[in-house]
């Protein structure tokens, strides 16, 4: 287990050192959310109504933009092959790297969401739920993203392909994330069922994607 945490710490240190990538992702999130009112008009009631959906979609796009980093650098410099030869099974390497991605990118995006929610006039009572649902849903996006990154590793136009492969798989997380927030703002459906299904989706994703991603990595390492 110490090898696992050592890998997580290493990835976090690397992410911290090259901080540029995280600020680019956050900047992308800000720009996408800020450009929407320019297209839709400044009607605050309309913006408040669509805020949960806009914040979620923009968050998924931003997360997608950053996931191809998960394995890319380690694949380029051969570190991934060394890791695969090491004591840690490939499945746990995937878990460690996806977890590091969630801590280094997912959490900053979640924390930025309430600030952007102010721009969209999200009702005050929804801020807590917004944070809670996003914190629950983003691990799933990091793990699904890791799967996409493993499948497209080393391919030309890998980033574009990754979006095409993974965005449809984000649909359930998006639907239940938004419907949990909407349950609090507009009702009438209760909050808890949507939230619990979102949590179940995340848990299932965490349990299953490492195996698929590890299988995809093995293809690349042969």
């Amino acid at each position: 287990m110490s090898a696992f945490w050592a890998l997580v710490r290493r990835d976090l240190r690397l992410a911290w050192r090259e901080g540029g990538a995280i600020s680019t992702t956050l900047g992308f999130y800000l720009v996408v959310v800020a450009i929407l009112p320019l297209g839709l008009g400044p009607d605050l009631n309309l913006l408040a109504r669509i805020a949960p959906g806009v914040l979620w979609v923009a968050l998924l796009l931003s997360a997608l933009l950053s996931v191809d980093r998960i394995f890319h650098n380690d694949h380029e410099d051969g570190a991934l092959e060394l890791l695969a030869l090491g004591p840690l099974p490939l499945e746990l390497i995937v878990v460690a790297k996806a977890l590091a991605h969630w801590i280094s990118t997912g959490i900053p995006l979640v924390l930025a969401a309430p600030v952007l929610a102010l721009l969209l006039n999200l009702p005050a009572e929804a801020f807590g739920v917004l944070l809670l649902t996003m914190a629950t849903g983003t691990p799933a996006t990091s793990f699904l993203g890791a799967l996409g990154a493993a499948l497209t590793l080393g391919l030309r136009r890998g980033g574009l392909l990754l979006s095409l492969l993974i965005l449809p798989l984000f649909v359930p997380v998006l639907i239940f994330g938004v419907s949990a927030i909407n349950a609090v703002i507009i009702g009438p459906s209760p909050f808890l069922p949507s939230y619990l299904i979102l949590a179940a989706l995340t848990l299932a994703t965490l349990a299953l994607t490492p195996f698929a991603a590890a299988a995809a990595l093995r293809l690349n390492l042969q």
């Binding site: 449809p168 359930p172 698929a212």
Partner: peptide, 14 residues
């Protein structure tokens, strides 16, 4: 196979 596992989940969420 990942997509196949997801098809019923997507259907349910939609």
């Amino acid at each position: 196979l990942v997509g196949f596992v997801n098809v019923p989940i997507i259907k349910f969420s939609v």
